[in-house]
């Protein structure tokens, strides 16, 4: 691991219990790891392994039962709901499996959404940053389109642009290719790889080995504990895969 770089995430023996009636479910039983700036990590695990819980904690959508979580050197564990909302707004970019774009709203306005809740941006700055973010994901020509006028891949790229607009410390992707066909998945993965090359820290939650092989580090969870935490020695290049796919006859 490259220790010269700043730590983006520091997790120290985090546990998370859910009380379901009389039973207590231990979703996470003491998980610790660090993620440095510029890493591209995938968190693997079958369903029930605790990866969704970990994702919610990393995304400041949930708080740990015990343990410490430092995001960009801020301890997140003790923050209130509103403070968490601010952290999400300033430091995290989400990409969801089901895109979660506002319907009947142009791509540009969808991308602007996080900055709507940040009073330090004027509406002109919002517009400029949204245009820049859409340019980064290659959708300059479709800024005025609404989600229903865009393909699945294009919608996910709008969602990625939305995750980029606040220049986050961390981009969290939850099965971001889960709803896409393989060609489009490779396009999106290639976009993530390019963003990572530009220095973005990305945490990608998935249950597919194929997808994880495109990331630089793979953390595997099982039953609420870390099973493996390996550097991926053979990172696949999504662009190559894309080129090797049989040509589509459109």
């Amino acid at each position: 691991m490259d220790n010269n770089k700043n730590t983006a995430i520091k997790i120290e023996s985090i546990t998370r219990n859910f009380v379901m009636g009389s039973e207590t479910v231990h979703a996470l039983r003491g998980v610790s790891f660090d993620v440095h700036e510029g890493e591209f990590v995938s968190i693997m695990g079958s369903s029930g392994s605790g990866k969704s819980t970990l994702l919610n904690l990393l995304g400041c959508l949930d708080r740990p039962t015990a343990g410490h979580y430092f995001l960009d050197e801020v301890s997140v564990g003790e923050l209130s709901r509103n403070q968490l909302a601010e952290i999400r707004n300033h430091k995290i970019g989400f990409v969801f499996q089901s895109f979660n774009l506002l319907p009947r709203t142009s791509a540009l306005e969808n991308v602007e959404l996080p900055l709507m809740y940040n009073p330090s941006y004027s509406s002109r700055q919002r517009r400029q940053r949204a245009e820049a973010a859409l340019e980064q994901v290659g959708l300059t020509s479709r800024m005025k389109h609404t989600p229903s006028q865009l393909s699945g891949g294009q919608q996910q790229r709008v969602a990625i642009a939305r995750a980029l607009i606040n220049d986050p410390v961390l981009i969290l992707a939850d099965e971001a290719t889960g709803n896409l066909d393989s060609r489009t998945s490779f396009e999106i993965l290639s976009l993530f790889q390019r963003l990572n090359e530009q220095g973005k820290t990305i945490v990608f939650v998935t249950h597919e080995n194929d997808i994880a092989s495109f990331t630089k580090r793979i953390i595997t969870l099982k039953d609420g504990r870390i099973l493996k935490d390996n550097i991926n020695t053979k990172v696949e290049d999504a662009r190559e895969w894309l080129e090797n796919l049989p040509k589509q006859d459109d």
Binding site: R81, A85, E86, N89, N100, P114, Y117, N118, R162
Partner: peptide
């Protein structure tokens, strides 16, 4: 979604 991207209550 609005809350996830930073909207407060």
């Amino acid at each position: 979604l609005r809350m996830a991207v930073g909207g407060k209550g």
